[in-house]
Design a protein around this nucleic acid. Structure first.
Length: 490
DNA sequence: TGAAATGTTGGGGCG
DNA sequence: ACGCCCCAACATTTC
């Protein structure tokens, strides 16, 4: 009789039961131990931020509940390194096999590669799989063998390659866990905030796999039709809000694309301009972000366009950064976005571009400072997407907005929030102002301000920067940078 | 997944 | 009636 097979399934950013290849591969074991390891110091400066930890707490809670319903449960441990904690767990459980789905952060790749080699040396079987991406970063390359740096050809190639639509089966029962392996409580991970800034989160979000499907079903069933037209208007609730669920792997892009294709009856190759194609392309941008971070791992910290390493950012920007973070810049659309972020852990995508343009171009604050703030405050904080987004905005990344493309938050507001509904939701002190001036209160005549009970500089700040002057200054600095001698490309 | 400056055109007011 | 001018409205160019 062969020795009993005991398998550890190490769950990381794949907190789901459905279409989970690592979990599916463990189902035939006699004993199966699903584990989550909290080792934040391994990620160093990219350990989960505050909002992300809130999400993680509740996602783990949901996963544990779902595992228990199938006769198992989540084993939670914490420690300095995953290697050390796994070694303990292997000792306690007698496991002879470890499975996980791959992560793609540079620090995680380095860690996992060493860990896999180490476990194999010690006679443990290890298998890793893909749960997070339609195509892994190394599997899609240009015909010359180099990585894509432009989105459109990347996404075309991804769709042409096609997507495996045979999902891994959702388990209906799980093998029992090995006896005598203790677990920490989720509370012991200290993921929840000490001061209750998260109250609104509970009304807006349902972390975990059931919540992910609730959001996906609502989006596909109710909002997809209006997506192409409404996705750029932040007051419209037509976006999917699936980003945090995708980040934690509570739902995967293969599942979403399959649901989308079944719903609309289109085939992946038929890329049109309709709502389904637009939404699929957003999944594509996520894929593109992972592609870039894998092939250019320095881009979480450093600009892909090396010329920007010498860009003359503002010298003393702390007060301006603080005003931006707190939503007190005096520019209504920017402040609305930053307050939405703070109070809900999320910001509409178009507004992310606008507040990012304002930070990097009007305030001349390094994009890394913005990326850090987003990392701490977004429930969907994702190293790949965040790095791509900020470099795109700053104009220093792959397929980025040209450096001279500076969003004017007043015009963007008038185009995409014409009634000012979004601004009024998050900047209530402007609620009484007529729509004509809602995006430019500093131009409103005194009697209208008075009627709206607004005293600029008291109840709402004056703009901390002149949009026209700062735009010209940014263009001038970008122009000088472009003219400077260029460093060798990486 | 721009904005602003500059150029062109055409309708209408007016002498 | 005609030419002149103004200036939206739209198009093109530049950043």
């Amino acid at each position: 009789m062969p020795p009993q097979q005991t398998t550890l399934v190490w769950l990381r950013q794949d907190l789901r039961l459905a279409d989970n290849p690592a979990l599916a591969a463990g189902l035939a074991s006699e004993r199966l131990l699903p584990v989550y390891l909290h080792t934040p110091s391994e990620a160093a400066e990219w350990a989960p931020g505050s909002a992300s930890r809130w999400w993680l707490h509740h996602s783990l809670t949901a996963l544990d509940r779902d595992l228990r319903a199938l006769g198992s449960g989540l084993c939670i441990r914490r420690g300095e390194t995953a290697a050390a904690v796994l070694a303990e767990l292997i000792g306690e459980s007698g496991a002879n096999r470890v499975l996980w789905n791959r992560c793609y952060e540079p620090w995680a790749i380095t860690r996992d590669r060493a860990l896999k080699a180490d476990l194999r040396v010690r006679g443990i079987r290890v298998a890793t799989t893909n749960s997070a991406l339609l195509h892994e970063p190394w599997s899609l390359l240009k015909s010359d063998g180099t990585p894509f740096r432009v989105f459109t050809p990347f996404w075309r190639a991804a769709l042409r390659r096609g997507v495996d639509q045979d999902l891994f089966p959702t388990p209906t029962a799980l093998p029992p866990p090995p006896a005598g392996v203790a677990s920490l409580s989720i509370e012991a991970l200290d993921l929840l905030p000490k001061v209750p800034w998260d109250r609104q989160f509970y009304h807006l979000w349902q972390p975990g796999e059931p919540g992910a499907w609730k959001a996906a079903t609502a989006f596909l069933g109710e909002h997809l039709l209006g997506y192409a037209l409404g996705r750029d208007r932040p007051a419209d609730a037509v976006t999917s809000r699936l980003s945090p669920h995708l980040h934690f792997g509570e739902i995967g892009p293969r599942q979403l694309l399959r649901a989308l294709l079944q719903l609309t009856g289109i085939i992946p190759e038929a890329v049109g301009q309709g709502s389904a194609a637009r939404f699929a392309a957003e999944l594509g941008w996520r894929e593109f972000a992972y592609h870039l971070l894998y092939h250019f791992p320095q881009t979480a910290e450093h600009p892909l366009d090396r010329r920007f390493a010498a860009f003359p950012w503002a010298a003393d920007y702390q007060p301006a950064l603080r005003a931006w973070q707190q939503g007190r810049t005096g520019i209504p659309l920017v402040d609305a976005g930053m307050r939405q972020l703070w109070s809900t852990g999320w910001m509409h995508n178009r507004v992310r571009m606008i507040v990012g343009s304002f930070l990097t171009k009007n305030l001349l604050i390094p994009w890394q400072a913005g990326a850090r703030w987003f990392w701490d405050t977004l429930v969907d904080a994702d190293l790949a997407s965040n790095s791509l987004g900020w470099q795109w905005t700053a104009g220093c990344g792959a397929d980025a907005a040209p450096y001279f493309r500076v969003f004017n938050p007043v015009l963007q507001g008038e185009r995409f929030d014409p009634e000012g509904a979004y601004v009024k939701t998050y900047v209530p002190e402007l609620g009484g102002l007529v729509r004509q001036f809602i995006h430019r209160p500093w131009e409103a005549p005194a009697h209208l301000l008075e009627a709206a009970d607004i005293r600029l500089g008291e109840t709402y700040p004056r703009p901390i920067v002149d949009l026209k002057v700062s735009r010209e200054q940014a263009l001038e600095r970008f122009g000088r940078m472009r003219a400077a001698p260029q460093p060798p490309s990486p």
